[in-house]
């Protein structure tokens, strides 16, 4: 039986793949720390959401999961927009995690070159990843199940 802790964090998921989004949502829900989970299948919409909520301290996501490979606007293109339009006016500490099914050094290296990217995660997103992230950035200790 999981002990219920304070659900405080707002999470934003950006991935075009429906199945992936479903999985993230489920995994995050199971971790019991998220107050609110939003997901977008189009990076453009996610960007607009962030811009619209720049002044909204309460609702602005604490944790963002960003997929690299997406149509129209991919993760890198999203990142460029994020850096110029969102990053300078962030209302609070917002952790950005890059997600990718690629194990390519080029992608990893490129991700490391951005100070705006806090973590690079090779899919799948697991509970261990989330445990590590919330401990590292929000000092929240998740209770291990079983």
């Amino acid at each position: 039986m999981e002990k219920i802790i304070n659900k405080t964090l707002k999470v934003l998921i950006i991935d075009d793949d429906d199945v992936s989004n479903f999985i993230y949502r489920k995994v995050i829900e199971n971790c019991n720390f998220a107050k609110k989970i939003d997901d977008f299948q189009r990076a453009q919409q996610a960007l607009q959401y962030l811009i619209d909520n720049l002044g909204n301290f309460e609702d602005f996501p604490d944790l963002i999961f960003l997929d690299i490979n997406m149509p129209i606007m991919n993760g890198w293109e999203f990142l460029e927009e994020y850096i110029s339009r969102v990053w300078p006016q962030l209302p609070k500490r917002s952790v950005l995690c890059m997600l990718s099914s690629s194990v390519y050094k080029e992608d990893i290296g490129r991700a490391e070159s951005y100070e705006q990217i806090d973590e690079y995660i090779s899919k799948p997103l697991t509970k261990d990843h989330i445990r590590m992230i919330v401990k590292k950035y929000f000092n929240i200790e998740l209770i291990r199940d079983n």
Partner: peptide, 21 residues
């Protein structure tokens, strides 16, 4: 290799996690 990494790995990884769920 890139295609393998993406197009094959993505659904496999998903199935893996889904089976856990």
């Amino acid at each position: 290799a890139y295609i393998t990494s993406h197009n094959l790995r993505a659904p496999v990884v998903n199935i893996d996690t889904l089976l856990e769920l």
